[in-house]
Design a protein around this nucleic acid. Sequence first.
DNA 1: CAACACCTATCTATCGTCAGGTAAAAACTG
DNA 2: CAGTTTTTACCTGACGATAGATAGGTGTTG
Lengths: 186, 186
Amino acid sequence: MSTDTKERIMEAARLTVQDLGYSGLSFRELAKDVGIKSASIHYYFATKGELGSAITSRYTSHFAQYFEELLTQGQDLKTCMARYTDVFANTLRNGNRMCLAGILSAERNELPDDVRSEVVKWGEMNERWIARVLMLDARAKPDETARRARAIFAAVSGAQLIAHSRGDVSVFEEIISAYRVSGLLP
Amino acid sequence: MSTDTKERIMEAARLTVQDLGYSGLSFRELAKDVGIKSASIHYYFATKGELGSAITSRYTSHFAQYFEELLTQGQDLKTCMARYTDVFANTLRNGNRMCLAGILSAERNELPDDVRSEVVKWGEMNERWIARVLMLDARAKPDETARRARAIFAAVSGAQLIAHSRGDVSVFEEIISAYRVSGLLP
DNA sequence: CAACACCTATCTATCGTCAGGTAAAAACTG
DNA sequence: CAGTTTTTACCTGACGATAGATAGGTGTTG
């Protein structure tokens, strides 16, 4: 018995959206990737929105778990943030792909409501986690931390967007190091 | 004689792309906006790529001129950067639209080559101008300025992306002010 | 009369979606 | 345990809508 078909659909769909966006995801192409017929996708996901929402929710859960592990392993502040930006860098390295929620953010105005809200959840999860990481520094002021966390999330997302537009991961790395020099990133 | 049709096509196309992206731009809908038939658009722009490239090039020229004026008017560093971020904020205020090149950046992997290169030109223009602005500070180190300019450009683009995904301009403003606190923005 | 600024009508391709079919596996019944 | 029914996991084939593009026509303007 091969890997669950539903899993394979979600995996292929995620990779396509990260590459071509939600609008670039077609049931027929997706079916070819998976090796089934397009109608069969509807057996698992009634609508495209349902599929989009499912892969985004899964994406958030996956990284929430990975980020959580970094903290439970007792990694320090700088290491946590380095691993964090690595996630975005590695996405670019994999076929110049974007963060799933990043590319969906740009497409926001043409997304179904349920996909939209999953994109927001990704952002909230990222901001919460970064805030916790920032609090590893005993000198951090709790009332400024949330704002700074959101700024870091936005800045890293922007670095990925610009590097993606150039098709060059080294642009991402350069921007991240400039964030460190400026003091935005620890 | 009403405003030049070609201008009206470009204006409407730009607004649609800033709203729905390049993939969300259709000749038929665009024709309706302008009040002509879709085939007539091909009279002015042979292909969709040609239209996309034209509006992006024009977008860059337009803001290059505006930014240039800020400098020739002798505005100081802080004012220049405030006017700069205002451009992105106002775009969001206008129907939660994104910077034209920002939304095209996300769609990069499915853009025609000529549109792609116009997106890169937008970035280069922004980075060059920000670098000049940073040099208004006599203490600025020339060899670090280019890197910092790129970081600012990316960070502001990211702030817009995240605010756009939330559909809330105040998110943009909050992030920008956090950039100032951190020292990334002057 | 020619250049211009459109138009009608149509082509091929692709889109998400759906009705309905099928073969095999699983569950239920006597 | 055999026989029957139901569910699972797909499939074929098609629907109407929409996409960019194009050939060729029409009316206006200089």
